[in-house]
Amino acid sequence: MRSILALAVLLAVAPLLIVPLGGYHALLSEMVIFAVFAIGFNLLLGYTGILSFGHAAYFGLAGYTMGLLLIHSDLPLWAAMLAGVLAAGVAAVIIGLLIIRKAGIYFAMLTIAFGQMFFFVAMRWKSVTGGEDGLSDIPRKTLFGLDLSSPVRFYYFTAVVCLAAAVVAWRVIHSSFGDVLRAIRENEARCAAIGYDVRRYKLASFVIAALFAAVSGTLYVLLLRYAFPQTMDWIRSGNVVVMSLVGGLGTFSGPIVGATLVTFLNNYISFHTRYWQLVMGVVFVVFVMFFPRGIAGYVLEARRRFRR
């Protein structure tokens, strides 16, 4: 629970730190939004050991659904967000059922393909999604009467959601359900032999990660007031995997560290060089080759050693 408290404090004071660091509030919101995505994704990749390279599809689908509802209906913000998240959840169940039998690298490849399918639909179904141009002018309505129009207020809104996401993830990890997920990661066959319906647990983990992605996606669209196809492409899916790895797989704080750091770096580097992809690529390669346990992984190990 200490990590949750620490997170709460950090989230509360972050606006004071970000400006001297050369950031700005919209960037901070973005960092927090991707943290939500990564927290959920960590349950799937870090704790269950399943690699999906297509979760940006749910991130984008939720954003588009919410955006369309906000533009075309009178639904209040909370209802539109909820609808977006549900839509993504349903899609995740359907795709999950279709591919969850497959394992490992085959599964990863299928997620890439299906993720890309969502991307192309968003790109081509112009009459609904706006195609390449995206959905613009999405109104950022009030939330239960709360005005979210100022960058700082919007940040605190995302911060509260992020904290809630962290609490939910914490509960999941420390439940018997979480134990089963870890057991699947360690030895799937044995877990099945004990009598667990492994497939169902894996599907649940897949869908939960999609729901986190969806929440994150709705926030992202609200932040930009814009939904666009590239929110769903495989580069975005790859990015969340990278965030998880840089932060530290299977650690509680890892995804948060990874998401905030990668988002900040991305933003910072793209201002200084037009070859920012190159720099990010080198960072990923270095982490994969030499620091595969991620920042949090090494920090935790160092702390353990220190205590001993």
Binding site: F53, I105, A108, V241, Q277
Partner: peptide, 16 residues
């Protein structure tokens, strides 16, 4: 290592 690592490595290489 986990196949994930080679996947991410090649992802990084593609960007580079």
């Amino acid at each position: 290592r986990d196949p994930l690592h080679t996947l991410l490595l090649t992802f990084g290489l593609a960007l580079i």
